[in-house]
């Protein structure tokens, strides 16, 4: 049996799921030294077209397959909608944002917007200049979706388009959303954005089936927001904001393992929160966020607000 997920496209530009737009002919069982495409095509007596396509095999070899042997089918998302709504078993994702390291570079925002095709003027990650009291010190506060354990947005959604997964992530099913924007009114963190116009995105992305794990492609008339990049988590990778931040502001991890990492430093979540007095935003509202903040003490950078000066 050939594992489809192990065959990766030659052109790394093409997304994983974009590959094998033409999926394989029927069953691939029983292939030996030949490539499975040719073996199966011969069984079903498909006429070769003469046009060859290069593919990378499971063993890392480049194989040439006749184009006619690839059968175009409806693209099947690697994970079903049901599985996406369930989430990753045994995980409880958590983020820690270290305010003492943030200097408003917005590399997180840039990477996030780019990866999720966020429309102009909109951001999933917002970086606020905060000053809690008149005489208190200002600081930069990046916000993602808080992925609340008692999410006000999920409570008000009339069609279950936004949902809470068992791994703690609050996801959005853009194929389900009716665009009533009640969730936007309900969210106290102003996390959600709405696709007011037709999103400007490459055709290849537009043709993909929607996945709540990539939140792509964004769809007109629906709400979208930070999704904690569960597609990356499934591959054992970190969210875009975490990897993009040069100062290691964002830590991401699993509460069940009690470990978080910003890519270069890995720590015990409970130790970090205890030693650095971690807190959550608007605790008094009872939303129980999954995002924790470390207060802006012993800062790496002075607060400079170029935007206002």
């Amino acid at each position: 049996m050939v594992d489809l997920s192990k065959i990766i496209p030659l052109n790394p530009q093409i997304q994983r799921r974009d590959f094998l737009k033409g999926a394989l002919l029927a069953s691939l069982a029983g292939c030996t030294n030949h490539d499975p495409f040719t073996t199966q095509a011969k069984k079903e007596s498909v006429k070769p077209s003469g046009q060859m396509v290069k593919l990378l095999s499971t063993t890392g070899e480049i194989i040439e397959v006749d184009k006619a042997y690839l059968k175009p089918t409806e693209e099947i998302p690697s994970i079903s909608n049901m599985a996406e709504r369930m989430g990753i078993e045994g995980k409880k994702f958590v983020m820690v944002i270290d305010l003492s390291r943030c200097r408003n570079l917005k590399k997180c925002q840039e990477a996030c917007n780019h990866a999720h095709f966020v429309s102009d003027h909109q951001n999933w990650i917002k970086v606020y200049p905060m000053q809690d009291g008149e005489k208190t010190a200002p600081y930069w506060q990046p916000t993602t979706c808080m992925h609340c354990d008692d999410p006000p947005c999920v409570k008000v959604c009339p069609v279950d388009a936004t949902f809470k997964r068992q791994d703690g992530i609050v996801g959005i099913d853009a194929d389900r959303c009716i665009g009533c924007r009640f969730c936007m009114a309900a969210c106290p963190y102003s996390t959600r954005v709405f696709n007011w116009d037709t999103p400007i995105i490459p055709q290849a992305v537009k043709d993909l089936p929607y996945s709540s794990e990539t939140s792509c492609p964004p769809k007109i008339g629906t709400v979208s927001k930070c999704d904690f990049c569960p597609d990356k988590a499934r591959n054992g990778e970190l969210p875009h904001c975490v990897t993009a931040c040069p100062n290691g502001v964002f830590f991401f991890g699993d509460l069940n393992e009690d470990s978080i990492t910003n890519g270069s430093e890995t720590m015990r979540f409970s130790d970090l929160i205890r030693d650095r007095s971690g807190y959550r935003l608007m605790e008094e509202l009872g939303t129980k966020p999954s995002v924790y903040y470390l207060p802006p003490v012993d800062r790496l950078f002075p607060f400079k607000n170029e935007e206002n000066s």
Binding site: V156, C180, F182
Partner: peptide, 23 residues
């Protein structure tokens, strides 16, 4: 008119969640 996706109006009946004040 206020709905972003009036074409999905039927979702209100097929996927309705009684917890939502909209329902």
């Amino acid at each position: 008119v206020d709905m972003g996706r009036p074409d999905r109006f039927w979702h209100l009946f097929v996927y309705s969640r009684l917890q939502s004040p909209i329902m």
